[in-house]
Amino acid sequence: MVLGVVLLLVSWQVAVDGPLLGLDRWARHAVRETRHTLHSTPLNHLGKAFSDLGGGSVAVPVLLLGAAVAARREFRAGFARWWLPVPVAVLTAGLIPLLVVPAKAWFARPGPFGLPLAADQWGWYPSGHTATATLGYGVAALLLARTAGPRSRRVLAAGTALLVAGVGLGLVWSDYHWLLDVVASWCLGGLLLWALARWPLTARPGARRPPRPGD
């Protein structure tokens, strides 16, 4: 509910150019001042590297690889529907642009530099890289968690959260996105992951029934 309310509030403010967008301007100014004060080339490179991890050329292959590994582990563990991780991953990869691209085109929000959108640009809201990272790495972690123990699931959850946070913060640090672009995609991805985690396809299914004599 909280994620949904925040997503709706931010989207409304972006649509009407509301006062909440002052948070974006404050964050951009603070980041630029900090970047100028530190003048750290390694930190700037780190921000760009994290930003790049949100690209489809990185996150989608990781998602598909994670699904393949999950399917193999489930097959070896005797899960009845061991093949499900692969179609779930493929559907997720196709869903990301279907959610993000129409929203970008509808809101048509200029980027942090304030330049008007070119004819071939969709807009900056919500952040496509953040959504891709949240859903790509998040769904991969959910699928791998089906055969993981409690400690491994905690490590997967923490690692994925840190990675997704790094992508979003890297985008803001590098002036690729407004802060609220990133927050909206975190909320959107979080809502979908919450729903998927409660869907039978990503629950821990039962193992195959061992064959009985005469089967």
Rank of each mutant, 00 (worst) to 15 (best):
L3C: 04
L3P: 04
V6L: 10
L7P: 05
L8S: 11
L9F: 15
L9K: 05
V10P: 07
S11A: 15
Q13D: 13
A15F: 11
A15M: 06
V16A: 08
G18K: 05
L20G: 05
L21G: 08
L23T: 14
R25V: 02
W26K: 11
R28H: 15
R32Q: 15
E33I: 07
T34K: 00
R35S: 14
T37I: 13
L38M: 10
H39V: 02
S40L: 10
T41S: 10
P42I: 04
L43M: 13
N44L: 05
L46H: 05
G47S: 04
K48S: 13
A49K: 01
F50I: 04
S51M: 11
G54C: 05
G56M: 00
G56H: 01
L63D: 03
L65A: 12
A68I: 10
A71Y: 08
R73L: 07
E74P: 00
E74R: 14
F75E: 14
F75G: 09
R76L: 15
R76K: 14
G78F: 04
F79L: 12
F79E: 13
W82K: 06
W83E: 10
W83Q: 07
W83N: 04
V86M: 13
P87Q: 11
A89L: 03
L91Y: 04
L91H: 01
A93Y: 04
G94A: 09
G94P: 01
L95T: 11
L95S: 11
L95M: 13
L98K: 08
V100H: 01
P102C: 05
A105D: 15
A105R: 15
A108E: 13
A108D: 13
R109H: 11
P110G: 01
P112M: 04
F113Y: 10
F113S: 14
G114C: 02
G114T: 08
L117W: 05
A119F: 03
A119H: 08
Q121A: 08
W124C: 12
S127E: 14
S127W: 07
G128P: 03
H129E: 14
T130Y: 00
T130E: 09
A131V: 06
A131R: 05
T132M: 00
T132N: 00
T134N: 06
T134Q: 09
G136W: 12
G136K: 07
G138I: 09
A141N: 13
L144E: 12
A145I: 02
T147Y: 01
T147S: 09
G149W: 00
G149Y: 02
P150M: 05
P150L: 02
S152Y: 00
R154K: 06
A158Q: 08
V164T: 09
V167R: 01
V167S: 00
G168D: 15
G168A: 12
G170E: 09
Y176L: 14
D181R: 07
D181E: 10
A184H: 08
C187F: 06
C187P: 09
G189R: 03
G190Y: 02
G190T: 04
L191D: 03
L192G: 10
L192R: 08
W194P: 02
A197W: 11
R198E: 10
W199Q: 08
P200G: 02
P200C: 04
P200T: 10
P205C: 08
P210Y: 10
P210K: 12
R212L: 15
P213F: 06
